[in-house]
Amino acid sequence: MYKFISSLLIGLSLGAIYSLMSISLVLVWRSTRVVNFAQAGQAIVSTYIAYEVVNRTGSFWLAFFVAILAGALLCAIVDRYFMRPLFKRVTSGPIVAIAPVVATLGLLGVLRAVVGFVWGVELKPIAAPVSLDGYSLGSEVLPFAPYNALVIVVVAVVLIALSLLFQKTNLGLSLRASAYSPEIARLSGIRVNEIRTLGWAIAGAAGAIAGILATPTSYLSPNSLDILLVFGFAAAVIGGLESMVGAVVGGLVLGLGVTFVSNYVSTSLIFPTAFVFLIVILLVRPSGIVSGKRSRRA
């Protein structure tokens, strides 16, 4: 029973982080039809910046907000000065269909290398703001710690803020409109390009939060967030890649699934589990478990 409860809780906190990464991929995909593989690279940059801030000032929360800002800024820059010129340049030939994938992949590599140059490739820790020791229940010590609870709370707050932004504000409306139908949005007086860059910035912020929340329970290295990217992508696909609700559901499903498999079967089956999830969803329900009507074509 203890094992079940702690798996459930750990799964939730893990799933919460996957959800954020997944949301950041979904936001970019909805507005630009690009799966931003460089998101892991951008998150690693913002997380290293956070590491630097924690080291200098000792404040996790200051670092947290600096990371969000850095992530948002970096993502906006990537859209404005990298993706847009790319779309303008690459317009013909067989490369067009794969150019965004290839370009974000290249960017991922460059960002990883830059981080390696600046901070080195050794593993670096970021101290958690609250205890990482599990709660004790009677004589048992659960693996679920105050930090995991904090992760769930922070992600919940971020999700509520995001859904308020998207559902209740004019800005959210223009974000949704320009993702849904850019031409009609432009005709209605929305500055689609600027809104799109803003959407990227929000995605970058979500990715940055995922990055810094994931780090205290493990270590930071130039490729430590690649795993998060893969899980975030799997979560996004489980959720249908179009929907933010789907992204959250997908993240939680994946987090719980992975945790239960690693606690009850074997810890080394984490990746295969995620992969099987991905393949099964794609075979059985290609439009995701929270699906819209649109068919799955790039």
Binding site: F233, F271, P272, F275, L282
Partner: peptide, 29 residues
Amino acid sequence: GFAAARLSGPYLAGTTLALAVGLPSLANQ
């Protein structure tokens, strides 16, 4: 490919990426 053929562009890219990350670690299993 049966899974892949249903996918296009980024879906396939992400799925094969997951394969690349996951398959080598299976060797330890």
